[in-house]
Amino acid sequence: MYIKKILWVIALVGLAVAAYLAYYVYSAMLSPNTAFNNEEAFIFIQTDADYQDVRGQLEPLLGDIETFDALAQRKQYTANIKAGKYRIVKGMNNNEIINSIRSKNIPITVSFNNQNTIGELAGRIGQQIEADSLSLISSILNSEFLESNGFESQTAIAMYLPNSYEFFWNTDADGFRDRMKKEYDKFWTDDRMAMAEEIGLSPVEVMTLASIVYEESKKADEQPIVAGVYINRLKRGIALQADPTLKFAAYQLPEYKNTVIKRVLNVHKEINSPYNTYMYPGLPPGPIAMPDLSAIKAVLNYQKHNYLYFSADPERLGYHKFATTLAQHNANARAYHAYLNSQGIKK
C-alpha cells in the first residue's frame, strides 16, 4: 500500500509538472503576446545587430518578453539574427513572431525624384534604406565602378532614373548602386538605343541634354519642342546657349554658394567653365541635374521644327515663346526682361 501511495504521488506530481510544462509551452509558443493597439508594428534590424538589439525593439511591443526570450533561445533565433524590416501583427504569439522576424523580410518602396546632385540623391536614399548617405556617395562615385561601366564622376548621376523601386530595407550602398545600373540598362532598350543613335547621341548624352531640357521646362507637353530647339542647334554647330548650364557653372563657385539665381546676367556668361554653353559649343561634360523621365523621352521623341531660339513667355508663366530668327527671339526676350523688371527681379 505504501508503495502504491508513493507511485500515486509521483504520478500526480508528474501530471502537475506536465500540466505546468504544457501551460508554459502554451504561454511561450501559442498564447498571444503583443502589447500594442495598432493592427501591426514594424521593427528594423540592422546588419550588425545582435539579439539584445532585437530584444530592445521588441520589449515595448510584447506583453511578456521573458517567454519570448525562452522560445527564441530554444529555436536558436538568438544566434541567427537576420537583418531587414519585419512586421508583427496584433495578436501574434511568440512562435509566429519568431517565424516572422527570422524569414519574412518585407520589401519596401524606395522612391526619389529629380535630385540636383549625387549628394542630394544619397541623402534621399539614406533616409529610406539602411545604407547611410556617406557610404552611398562613396559607392556611387567609386572610380573602378564608373570606369568599368562607361561613366565618369561628371556623368555618374545619369545612371539614376527618378522613379519608385522595390528594395529590402537592409540593402547596402553597393546593392543600391548595382540595382540602379540594372534599371538603367533595362530602360535603354534596343529601340531607345536606336533612337539615340539616330539623333547622334549616346545614352549619357541624351541624359545630359534631357537634364537641360528639364531645367528649362517642367511642362511635359512643351519639352519635346525645347528638345527640338537644342537638337537643331547641335546639328547646325550653334552653341546651345542654355541658361540652366550657366546657373550650374555659377553654383560651382564659392561666391554663388547658398544663392538662388533668378535672372541670368551677362556676368554669368563670362564664367570660364565647360558647363558654360555660351562660351563652349556642344553639350556640357555631363548632366546638370537628374532629368525627369518625361524629359528623357522628350529628347528621344523631340519635335521636328525650325525653331532655333526660345524665351520665357510672360503671358504664360512656365511656358516659352519660340522663334526661328534672332530678331524674333530678341523681341520675345525683351518682353520677358520687361516682365522681370516689373517684378523687381534684378538677379
Results as ranks from 00 to 15, higher is better:
residue 2 Y to T: 14
residue 8 W to S: 06
residue 8 W to Q: 12
residue 9 V to H: 08
residue 10 I to D: 09
residue 15 L to S: 12
residue 16 A to D: 04
residue 19 A to G: 15
residue 25 V to T: 12
residue 25 V to R: 13
residue 27 S to C: 04
residue 28 A to G: 05
residue 32 P to S: 04
residue 35 A to S: 14
residue 36 F to V: 09
residue 36 F to L: 10
residue 39 E to C: 02
residue 45 I to H: 04
residue 46 Q to R: 15
residue 47 T to F: 05
residue 50 D to V: 15
residue 50 D to W: 08
residue 52 Q to L: 13
residue 52 Q to R: 13
residue 52 Q to Y: 12
residue 55 R to N: 05
residue 55 R to V: 02
residue 56 G to A: 15
residue 57 Q to D: 07
residue 59 E to K: 10
residue 60 P to M: 07
residue 62 L to K: 05
residue 63 G to Q: 11
residue 64 D to V: 03
residue 70 A to S: 07
residue 71 L to R: 11
residue 73 Q to N: 10
residue 76 Q to V: 09
residue 78 T to F: 02
residue 80 N to A: 15
residue 80 N to P: 14
residue 80 N to K: 15
residue 81 I to E: 14
residue 81 I to M: 13
residue 85 K to N: 05
residue 87 R to D: 00
residue 88 I to K: 03
residue 89 V to W: 01
residue 92 M to V: 03
residue 93 N to W: 02
residue 95 N to F: 04
residue 97 I to M: 06
residue 98 I to Y: 03
residue 102 R to M: 13
residue 107 P to T: 09
residue 108 I to R: 02
residue 108 I to Q: 01
residue 111 S to L: 02
residue 114 N to M: 15
residue 115 Q to G: 06
residue 120 E to D: 15
residue 121 L to W: 06
residue 124 R to W: 02
residue 132 D to P: 07
residue 132 D to I: 13
residue 134 L to H: 09
residue 136 L to V: 04
residue 140 I to Y: 00
residue 146 L to I: 09
residue 149 N to K: 15
residue 162 P to L: 13
residue 172 D to P: 08
residue 172 D to T: 09
residue 174 D to G: 01
residue 176 F to N: 03
residue 177 R to W: 00
residue 177 R to F: 00
residue 179 R to Y: 08
residue 180 M to K: 00
residue 181 K to H: 11
residue 183 E to A: 03
residue 185 D to N: 12
residue 186 K to V: 12
residue 186 K to G: 09
residue 190 D to C: 02
residue 191 D to P: 02
residue 192 R to N: 13
residue 195 M to H: 03
residue 200 G to V: 04
residue 201 L to M: 03
residue 202 S to M: 05
residue 205 E to V: 01
residue 205 E to P: 07
residue 209 L to H: 08
residue 211 S to G: 04
residue 215 E to G: 11
residue 217 S to R: 05
residue 220 A to E: 15
residue 226 V to C: 06
residue 227 A to D: 00
residue 227 A to K: 01
residue 229 V to R: 10
residue 230 Y to R: 01
residue 231 I to M: 07
residue 233 R to N: 04
residue 234 L to Y: 01
residue 234 L to D: 00
residue 235 K to R: 14
residue 236 R to T: 01
residue 236 R to E: 07
residue 237 G to A: 01
residue 238 I to T: 02
residue 241 Q to M: 04
residue 246 L to G: 03
residue 248 F to E: 07
residue 248 F to T: 07
residue 249 A to N: 10
residue 256 Y to G: 11
residue 257 K to P: 01
residue 260 V to E: 11
residue 264 V to K: 05
residue 268 H to S: 09
residue 273 S to C: 11
residue 278 Y to I: 13
residue 284 P to T: 09
residue 284 P to C: 02
residue 287 P to Y: 07
residue 290 M to F: 09
residue 290 M to C: 14
residue 290 M to E: 10
residue 291 P to W: 04
residue 292 D to R: 14
residue 293 L to Q: 14
residue 294 S to E: 15
residue 298 A to C: 05
residue 303 Q to G: 01
residue 304 K to P: 03
residue 307 Y to L: 11
residue 313 D to G: 14
residue 314 P to K: 06
residue 315 E to W: 09
residue 316 R to Y: 12
residue 316 R to T: 12
residue 316 R to M: 06
residue 324 T to V: 15
residue 324 T to Q: 15
residue 324 T to P: 12
residue 326 L to M: 11
residue 331 A to H: 07
residue 332 N to E: 11
residue 334 R to T: 08
residue 337 H to W: 00
residue 339 Y to T: 09
residue 343 Q to P: 14
residue 347 K to L: 11
